[in-house]
Amino acid sequence: MEQPRINIGVLLRRQLIPVGIALGVGLIVLIGQFISNSTLDSIVGVLVSWGAIVGAFALLLGLANLGMFHAGRILKRDAQMPFSILIVASALVVFLLVLPSGGAGAASQWVMRYLYQPLEASFLALLVFFIGSAVYRALRIRTWEMALFAISAIVVLVGSVPFMAVVSPLIPAAKEWVVNVPALAGVRGILLGVALGIIATGLRLLTGIDRPYSH
């Protein structure tokens, strides 16, 4: 069987340049976070501000992708077409209202106060019912872990009610203890794992072991 030809020059160019950029920029910013030096600080400041600008372009890329997706749906007269039209139209109207002031003007505040905030708050409020049904289903699993889960949730929930301090001062004290001792320990263990995971993933990216940008 004939082996595929590998063009070393192309491979190097395709891998080396992006990896070099990621590694170089990443190491400078990483060192800049732990060493205090005025020159290094200003270089890191410029690199990070460039990162924000490139991030803004990434948002444009996402917007273009979203626009193309919904345009495709509208052109194909998909069953979801009315919702695509609504998304595009509302995005355009809000964009035109907010663009001149950049979030600080009266029009932006109106959009935020009467459009976005009620929608977001209603969606969050709606979650109460789903959490309720999820808790009911979770409590049907009879294991010692679920028992601890339920006891902890009930103690914290009941202890959070201000009226309970009148019934017995032990109830808020129990809630404080659960939050400040066992729950804190559990969260701390998870956070330590998360931190180590972030560091490992970041180092894999910086050393070029993972190269999601050159696929």
Binding site: I21, A22, G26, G202, L205, P212
Partner: peptide, 24 residues
């Protein structure tokens, strides 16, 4: 790929720094 590599480089460095000084 250059822009994406730049974003990943900056993101990874800031994430490592944040995880070390803000979490671990």
């Amino acid at each position: 790929n250059i822009g994406l590599a730049y974003l990943f480089g900056i993101g990874a460095a800031l994430a490592i720094g944040g995880a070390l000084s803000g979490l671990l």
